[in-house]
């Protein structure tokens, strides 16, 4: 993970963990605050803040002494959301090139036929 020091670091950690979950790299246990802090070279309190935010969003849950866990439905939800984002930007860039929704649908159907 490459951190951009000109943007809030805790937000970038939230984004990174979400991506790792949706890619299936994190299945159950989220790395401990200290392990991730040392991996990224950031203050542990910054990592803890990112985890608190993910807990607030309902993606993970923390238990004292057990660490932080991914909630069962989080992976599917995060994956759906990321797929949606990719589709949106795909449609948006084609629209900006002058393609209509109808033409885009046609293109997608073509992909289907090829496979």
């Amino acid at each position: 993970m490459k951190i951009d020091k000109s943007k809030p670091i805790w937000r970038q950690i939230v984004q990174e963990i979400k991506e790792r979950i949706s890619r299936g790299e994190i299945v159950e246990n989220v790395p401990t605050v200290r392990a991730l802090a040392e991996e990224l070279g950031v203050n542990p309190n910054t990592v803890a803040r990112a985890y608190r935010e993910m807990e607030r969003e309902g993606i993970v849950e923390s238990w004292v002494g057990k660490g932080t866990w991914v909630k069962k439905k989080s992976r599917d939800k995060l994956k759906d959301k990321m797929v949606e984002e990719v589709v949106d930007s795909f449609v948006e860039s084609l629209t900006s090139m002058g393609l209509s929704k109808k033409e885009i649908k046609k293109l997608v159907r073509k992909i289907d036929d090829k496979n």
């Binding site: 951190i3 020091k5 990224l40 070279g41 950031v42 203050n43």
Partner: peptide, 28 residues
Amino acid sequence: MLFERTIFMKDGNVAIDGESDALREKYG
């Protein structure tokens, strides 16, 4: 990246003081 809070000093005084991530957000 270790600093939760950054205190900038200039000429014996505190020039800027804040939570580092809040300063990143404010100044970009």
